[in-house]
Design a binder for these strands. Structure first.
Length: 814
RNA sequence: GCCCGGGUGGCGAAAUGGCAAACGCAGGGGACUUAAAAUCCCCAGGGGGCGACCCCGUGCGGGUUCGAGUCCCGCCCCGGGCACCA
C-alpha cells in the first residue's frame, strides 16, 4: 500500500536530482554535426562582474531559455551555448578598485557565474563555452582585425578621444555618462587628440539602415538603431570667397538658401586660418583656444548662450549673389556634415539666437498661404505643411519641398550644389590605451611602416603585467614593457615596435556567436560547414541597452566578413527580441544605488523553477517591470497543486479508475495547449502561465487522469524544467521530458461546445444566453426577443437593426 | 525639440472593434484545527436600491461606429532613444 501521507514537493531535492541526471545523460548536449533541424538559440553572454548574477540577468536568461526549450520540444535541434565577455574596462576598473589583478579575479568571477547559471536550470551546452579573455578566443579577434585591416576597413588616424583627468586614461564612450567619468561622477571628461585605430563602419551606414526595414527584430530596437544611424538627406552648397576659397556647407533645407545671411564654420575647420583677416586674427585665435580647451559637455549643451567670432571674410551666397559674413562658433560641430553651415536665422532657432546676439540680418523665406514676407521676430517653423517660398526671386510661391529640389538642381548646373546624404553614425574607434584587452596585432617598423602581425604568429598574447595601472602618458600600460613591444619587423627583420593599444571589448562581443559552434576548434575561427549549418543565429534575445553598440557592431563585423567572402550571410541574427528591463523601486539596478537584487536567496528559498516562473509571471517579458517578491508564493501554490494532481495519479488507482474523462476537460486541455503554444511562441510567457493555472484549477474540480496531466508536464517543461521532469517521470514518461514531443491540439476540440451569447440592446449588455456553438442568427434573435430581461428594453417593438456576431453577441438596435 | 513605447481595480496584470478587469498577489468572510500555519469554499472597480436590478467606469477633451481600453484628431503625464546633427 502506498504511504497515506504523500511527500510534498521539495524543490531542492528535485532540482539536485535532475541537474545531476542532465549531466549524466548529456540531456543538454547538441549534436552540432549531426543535427538535421538546427536552431541556434542565442542570449547575450554576460560580463562576469564580481557581484555575480543579478535578477535582471536571470530574467533575461530564463526568458531565452524558455524559448530554446520550447523550440526543442517543438522538434528543433536546439543549440544553446553560453560564454563570458570578460575583457574590458569594466573588469579592469573593478580590478583596480579592489587591488587584485584581473587575470586572477576574472576566472574566479566566471566560476561563480557558471555555477549560478547552472543552478537556474539553463539548457546550456557547456562544452561550447567561450571566454573572450582566452588566448584561444582572442587569437581570432586579432585575426578578424587583420582581415579588416587588409580590406582597408581598419585605419589609424588622429582623433579626439575621451580623457578622464582623474583616471589619467582614455575612456570608452560607454564609460562616459552624460559627459562625466563613470568612476568619478564629478569629473568632466576632456577631449584629447590621439592616434587611434578606427573601423570604418560609416561606409556601411546605408546598408545597416536598409536591412533594418525588413529585419525580424523588436520594433523598439530597430527604431533606436535607425535613430543612431541618423540618415539625413540634403545638399552640399558652395559659398565662394572673393579670394577663391570654396566653403562647402551641408543643409537639409536648400529651399531656405535665399535666407542664408551669414555662414558659420566650426572653430576647428581647416579653412579658418585662411579666411581670418589680419585684424580679426587675435580674436579668432583666442576663441579657438577657448573652445579646444572646453570639455564635451559644456560644448554640446543647447541651452548655453551663443558665442562666436567674425573671421573678417565674406562669401557669396550662391542663390542671392550677396556677400555674407563668415563667422566661427562652437555651435557648429566639425564631426557632422562639412563642419560648416549656412545660417538661416529666419527659420532656425539656433541661427536666430546667434543672429540676434551678433546683430546679423534675418529674412523670412518660407510662409504660409498668406505669403507674409515680413522679417520674423523669432525663428519661424520652416516645415509648415503648405509652406511656400517668399523673398526668393524665381522660386516665390513654390511649395518648399519642391523648391528645395529645384534650387539644388539649378545651383548644381553652376557646380555650386550636390545632393548628399549624411549620417550621424561615426567610425568606430576601437583602440584603447588600456591593459585588459587583446593587443592590436600590428608592428611598426622604421623601414616598412605599419606591418600586420603574420597570422601564423597569432595570438599576440597579452603579457603578464604586475602594474597595469593606466598613467598620464596617453599610451597603454603595455608601452612600459619594452621586452614585450620590442620585436623584429616581420617584413625586414629589423627591430620594430608593437602596437601597444588593445582593442575595444565591443570587438570581442561583435563576433562571439560565430565562435560558439567552433569553440572547440583551434585551427580556425569558425568552421565553414558548421557556420553554414548553424548561422545566422535563429533567435537572439537580449536587452535594448545594447541596441546600438553591440548589435550594430555585430552587424557591421558580419557584413564586413561577408564582403570578404568569409561568411555566406550579411546579417548575423535572423530574429531579435528585446526583453524588458527589471528595475527596482523605479530605478535601474546598480551597485551604487544599492538596489541590486541577488537571485541566490530566492533560488535557495523557493527553488529555481518557482523563481523562473515567478519572474516570467511578473508581467510581459518584452516590457519588464519593477521587481518585488510579493506573490512568489502564488507560483509555489500552483506547482504544489500540480504536484498533488500528479501524486494522485502516480500513487496509483486506489479507487478503480473507470477513466471518467470529462469531455469538457478534454476540450479545455486542447484549448490550453493552443494558448500555451501560441503564447510561448510569441514570448507572452505571463499569459501562457495564466492559461496553465486555469487548466490546473479546472482539473482539480474534475477527475485527474494521466492523459490529462502528461501534456501539462510537457507544457511546463520550458518554464519549470526540473519540476516537469519529475512529473513526467512520476506519470510514467520515458526518458527526459525534453525529448518528448510538444503536445498538439485539435482546433475543433479547442473551443467550448456551449457558448454564452451576449445580448445587447442599443449596445448595452442586457442578457446572456447559453447557446450551442454555431447557433444561427435566427435562433439567437428569437431567443433574445423571448428573454424578459431583453423585452424590458425593447419595449415590444421589433428591432430596427440586428448585429449578429456568431458565437459571441447579438446587438438589437431599437 | 524630434523619434519610439506606455497610461486599465488596493497591487502585478488580461482583453482578433464585441461580456472590461482573465490569471495571480494582498484583503474580507467561512470550513477544517484545542490553536496557528497549510489547505479548501465564498466575496471582492465605484455609486444607488430591501431586492430583481439600475447608473457610472480603461489619463483628459472631441470624433467615427449598432458597439471603442482597442480606430481617428487634439492635449496631459510616465518610460526609453537621439540631440547646438544644420
Amino acid at each position: 500500500m502506498p504511504n497515506s501521507e504523500p511527500a510534498g514537493y521539495d524543490p531542492q531535492s528535485v532540482e539536485r536530482k535532475w541537474q545531476r541526471r542532465w549531466d549524466e545523460r548529456g540531456t543538454n548536449r547538441t549534436d552540432l554535426a549531426g543535427a538535421t533541424r538546427p536552431y541556434f538559440n542565442l542570449m547575450m553572454f554576460p560580463y562576469p562582474s564580481a557581484e555575480g548574477l543579478h535578477v535582471g540577468n536571470v530574467f533575461a536568461f530564463v526568458g531565452a531559455d524558455i524559448h530554446g526549450r520550447f523550440r526543442r520540444l517543438a522538434g528543433s535541434d536546439v543549440f544553446e551555448p553560453l560564454g563570458f565577455d570578460a575583457f574590458g574596462i569594466h573588469s579592469e576598473n573593478f580590478a583596480l578598485k579592489v587591488g587584485t589583478h584581473p587575470a586572477e579575479l576574472i576566472p574566479r568571477n566566471i566560476e561563480r557565474f557558471r555555477a549560478q547559471l547552472k543552478r537556474i536550470g539553463l539548457m546550456a551546452d557547456w562544452r561550447y563555452e567561450v571566454q573572450t579573455t582566452d588566448p584561444r578566443y582572442y587569437k581570432w579577434t586579432q585575426w578578424i582585425f587583420l582581415q579588416l585591416y587588409r580590406a582597408g576597413l581598419a585605419v589609424k588616424r588622429r582623433a579626439a578621444v575621451n580623457w578622464c583627468p582623474a583616471c589619467k586614461t582614455v575612456l570608452a564612450n560607454e564609460q562616459v555618462i552624460g559627459g562625466f567619468c563613470e568612476r568619478h561622477p564629478d569629473v568632466r571628461v576632456e577631449q584629447r587628440m590621439l592616434d587611434q585605430w578606427f573601423f570604418t563602419i560609416s561606409r556601411y551606414a546605408q546598408r545597416l539602415l536598409d536591412h533594418l526595414e525588413t529585419a525580424d527584430w523588436s520594433h523598439s530596437t530597430r527604431t533606436i538603431q535607425a535613430n543612431w544611424i541618423g540618415r539625413s538627406e540634403g545638399a552640399e552648397l558652395v559659398f565662394a570667397t572673393p579670394a577663391g576659397k570654396r566653403i562647402t556647407v551641408f543643409t537639409t533645407r536648400a529651399d531656405t538658401v535665399f535666407g542664408a545671411t551669414y555662414l558659420v564654420l566650426a572653430p576647428e575647420h581647416p579653412l579658418v586660418a585662411d579666411l581670418t583677416t589680419a585684424e580679426q586674427r587675435s580674436d579668432v585665435q583666442t576663441y579657438r583656444r577657448k573652445v579646444s580647451a572646453m570639455d564635451l559637455v559644456s560644448r554640446k549643451v543647447g541651452e548655453k548662450a551663443k558665442t562666436g567670432v567674425f573671421t573678417g571674410s565674406y562669401a557669396r551666397n550662391p542663390a542671392t549673389g550677396a556677400a555674407v559674413p563668415v563667422w566661427i562658433a562652437d555651435y557648429v560641430l566639425m564631426e557632422y556634415g562639412t563642419g560648416a553651415i549656412m545660417a538661416v536665422p529666419g527659420h532656425d532657432e539656433r541661427d536666430f539666437e546667434f543672429a540676434a546676439t551678433m546683430r546679423l540680418p534675418c529674412v523670412r523665406v518660407v510662409a504660409g498661404p498668406a505669403q507674409d514676407a515680413s522679417t520674423p521676430l523669432a525663428a519661424a517653423e520652416p516645415d509648415i505643411p503648405d509652406g511656400r517660398l517668399v523673398n526668393s526671386p524665381g522660386f516665390d510661391g513654390m511649395p518648399w519641398r519642391e523648391a528645395g529640389r529645384a534650387i539644388t538642381a539649378k545651383l548644381a548646373e553652376a557646380g555650386l550644389a550636390t545632393p548628399v546624404v549624411n549620417f550621424r553614425l561615426h567610425d568606430w574607434c576601437i583602440s584603447r590605451q588600456r591593459y585588459w584587452g587583446p593587443p592590436i596585432p600590428i608592428i611598426y617598423c622604421d623601414g616598412c611602416g605599419t606591418v600586420p602581425v603574420p597570422e601564423k604568429d597569432l595570438p599576440v598574447v597579452l603579457p603578464a603585467l604586475e602594474d597595469f595601472r593606466p598613467d598620464d602618458s596617453g599610451v597603454s600600460p603595455l608601452a612600459r614593457l619594452e621586452s614585450w613591444y620590442r620585436v623584429p619587423c616581420p617584413q625586414c627583420g629589423k627591430m620594430g615596435r608593437r602596437e601597444t593599444d588593445v582593442s575595444d571589448t565591443f570587438l570581442d562581443s561583435a563576433w562571439y556567436f560565430l565562435r560558439y559552434p567552433s569553440a572547440d576548434r583551434d585551427d580556425l575561427a569558425f568552421e565553414p560547414g558548421l557556420t553554414r549549418r548553424w548561422l545566422p543565429v535563429s533567435s537572439y534575445i537580449g536587452g535594448n541597452e545594447h541596441a546600438v553598440l553591440h548589435l550594430m557592431y555585430a552587424r557591421f563585423i558580419t557584413m564586413a566578413l561577408h564582403d570578404l567572402g568569409l561568411v555566406p550571410f550579411e546579417e548575423p541574427f535572423r530574429r531579435f527580441r528585446a526583453h524588458g528591463t527589471i528595475i527596482k523601486d523605479g530605478a535601474k539596478m546598480s551597485k551604487s544605488r544599492g538596489n541590486v537584487v541577488n537571485p541566490d536567496a530566492y533560488v535557495e528559498r523557493w527553488g529555481a523553477d518557482t523563481f523562473r516562473m515567478y519572474l516570467m509571471f511578473l508581467g510581459p517579458y518584452q516590457e519588464g517591470g519593477d521587481f518585488r517578491d510579493a506573490g512568489i508564493n502564488g507560483i509555489r501554490r500552483f506547482l504544489d497543486k500540480v504536484w498533488t494532481l500528479v501524486d494522485g495519479v502516480a500513487v496509483g488507482p486506489q479507487t478503480p479508475s473507470p477513466n471518467p474523462q470529462d469531455p469538457a476537460l478534454v476540450r479545455l486541455m486542447h484549448r490550453t495547449i493552443q494558448r500555451v503554444t501560441e503564447d510561448t511562441e510569441s514570448l507572452s510567457y505571463n499569459t501562457a502561465i495564466a492559461a496553465m493555472m486555469e487548466y490546473v484549477n479546472a482539473l482539480r474540480d474534475g477527475v485527474a487522469v494521466g492523459s490529462l496531466l502528461s501534456p501539462l508536464a510537457i507544457l511546463l517543461a520550458p518554464y519549470a524544467p526540473h519540476f516537469a521532469e519529475e512529473c513526467w517521470e512520476r506519470l510514467g514518461g520515458k526518458g527526459s521530458v525534453m525529448d518528448a514531443a510538444w503536445p498538439r491540439f485539435d482546433p475543433a476540440l479547442a473551443v467550448a461546445e456551449q457558448v454564452e451569447l451576449v445580448v445587447q440592446v442599443n449596445g448595452k449588455v442586457r442578457s446572456r444566453l447559453p447557446m450551442p456553438r454555431g447557433a444561427t442568427e435566427a435562433t439567437v434573435v428569437n431567443a433574445a426577443l423571448a428573454d424578459p430581461a431583453v423585452q424590458r428594453f425593447t419595449a415590444g417593438t421589433a428591432p430596427r437593426k440586428v448585429v449578429f456576431v456568431p458565437d459571441r453577441l447579438v446587438n438589437l438596435v431599437v
